[in-house]
Amino acid sequence: MLMVCVLYTLVEILTRQLGGSLGGVDEISGYVMAITSSWGVSYALTERAHVRIDLVRERLVSKGRALLDAIAIMSLAATALVVAWRGWSVVAKTLSTGARANTPLETPLWIPQLLWWSGWLWFAISAVLLVVYVMLKLFVSDEDAIEEAVGMGGSE
């Protein structure tokens, strides 16, 4: 998470310092965006910031809510795993062709793509860990702990 922030600050400084004077700002911004997004989604996950519709959920008793939370985190983990898995094929193709960006910078694409992909991998790992945790708590009927870990998020 901090890494994202550092990267973020870096691009800030970069874009401002270079202004429109240097080509490649767009290219680097694109990479930073991809990497920030992929690492940011895990951060948003631990902060419970991902938007969920609570129309049904808020009407349920705590047991039902815990069940929906479990379903939600499992679908999330499954999706994250699929994206991480298919995302690897992007990195793999890049590594196999030695792809470089179609720009004057000729950035070796494996660098931004590996950073991007590891964000999704981390997302998948955190989600799977949360699934395990939620399963354990579901088993001992500790709904509060589930709410605390994967319930509806609020603001700061």
């Binding site: 700002v25 911004s29 694109g30 965006m33 298919r86 995302g87 992007v90 991007w116």
Partner: peptide, 19 residues
């Protein structure tokens, strides 16, 4: 389509406009 999933995710987030 899912074979191309990774590529779509990469290309849609690798965007200077979205930043």
């Amino acid at each position: 389509l899912m074979r191309g999933l990774g590529q779509v995710v990469w290309s849609s987030s690798n965007s200077a406009t979205l930043i």
